[in-house]
Write a protein that binds this DNA or RNA. Sequence first.
DNA 1: TTCCCCTCT
DNA 2: CTAAAGAGGGGAA
Length: 597
Amino acid sequence: MEPSQASESLVKRLAGPSTGKAGLAKDQSEINQIIADVSKGSKFYEASNNEKKKDEEVSKKIEQILKLRDELSSGVDMQRVETSVDHIASTLLSKLESERDLSQTIVHFDLDSFFASVEILNNPELEGKPFAVGHTVVSTASYAARKFGVRSGMATFIAKKLCPELIMVDHGFSNYSDMSKKVMAICKRYDPQMCPAGCDEGYLNITSYCAEHAMGADECVQHLRDAVFAETKLTVSAGIAPNLMLAKICSDKNKPNGQFHLPFDSEAIISFMHDLPIRRVPGIGRVSERLLESIGIKTCGDVRTHRATLSLMDKQFGLVHLLRTHLGIASNSVEPPQREERKSIGAERTFQPLGDKDKILEKLEEVCTELESDMEETQWTGRTITLKYKLETFEGSAFILPPSVNLIHLVFTRAKSCSRWISKKEDLFAIGQELLLPELPLRIRLIGLRVTKLKDLRSALDPSIGIKRFFNGPTSPNKKPRISEEEEPCSVPEASARKRKPDSKPPPPEPERHICPVCGKGVATENEAFNAHLDSCLSRQAIREAHAEASTAPPRPPTPKQTDIWAQWRKIKKSHNIIIYFVPLYFANVALTPLPA
DNA sequence: TTCCCCTCT
DNA sequence: CTAAAGAGGGGAA
């Protein structure tokens, strides 16, 4: 697939509902590209869908993969490779097939539009109406709202455009958690080892229950769903299959308020997988979906078709894993969640930008108080303290930014490792100050503290095993040994020792040049070079210095030339009625679109 | 290993 | 007119 083609869907999504407007067809697509580029790193872009943010990176990756594939297969007789791969694959497949275990009956249950259903219980008037739970972002849409295209994760203002009648309902978290507990308790009757997967779904192994109660799986699950409904008035959908992955996929089959029982039969399972879009497989996300699509794999059945390529590119795609997926083989072990092995614990707070040292310290203290009580509650202590702060909204800075830019988050972290175990508020506050004070004066809008290099005060004896979710196989024993309790020398890095990110390589000579929207200098048009330039031009350090300068000196007036550039943008925006939501954050990986003449 | 940064919910 | 907070992990020295 062409990379440009790959970003088409992204571009459309970014452009929003007005994309199809008549009369602008060709122009619009160019403009859309601009919006896409400009939106990169924007709040809208990030909040609405991570797929978009990743889009360009994925495109690059795809390019690399296709290049690699072509290199690998050039000079190689694909026919012959396929034959030899067939051998590998068939050996592999029969080995995998022999691993297949159909002896356990696994159930995945999933409450139907959980938040929305609970809200209906609290306010029956909502029944049948298009409403959504959430405020700025939709958490859950009622089924009536879904008909309009309203979906979870969607910004409210977009949802309202799709469905002007949409009623927004605020979260009632405590209700959700109460209901969730009730449902989980009911499910546990069918398998005491039940494994919740979030507040509205979970896994069960009902093999024993069925045997003990002389029940079929369908009957058992129907029984469970009836019990849930009788006791909570919530409907639940379920999938019955020989493993977790299949059960999860199956619970979606007859949603809402239904159940689906996959035949426990190798052939039936393989044919079930055959037409299943690979995206539906738990663990295959947007990125993997696109990568696989680039080599022609859209369904689980396609895995077999493209086994030659996959075998050549085992490193990139993981042949065995995909073959298992194709066969519908996965873990069937349901265990209660393991005791969590935390890597860090922290707290942070956002507030109106503060410049006053004492006020900032007050906030820091607040954070410390919270962190201390969290650490006390969960019984953790640690040795490394990381301070995090966000600079205030970036306005009237020394940089020339387009008028629509009014929000830039600049996040900084400063860390220090100690010889002692830290968990007392006083210690947290002292170290927090130590890290923060050298940074001031600064106007900041967030302050946070996080403790890492943890030690479990409950002296966990059970070496917790990583939760095997969907797949068997060697879960990498990545656990690092606990830090010894011996006192170690404290390492305090000098502020001056902080290195700036080295500038990227200079761009190769390019005939065409454009004006960098940040520094106003001419920059090579070629994408990579342009991005390299932006990276250095917008390095944290550079912005930070500018920020410091801007907070003491009045904002530098834009040079006419740079103003012109953004005036052009404004014009484009106006003439095409485009909403440019937010503009690149300082780190935005902006693809360069030549400015219209 | 340590620190800083980025990414993913 | 767009979430905030919390966590994991990787690169660079």
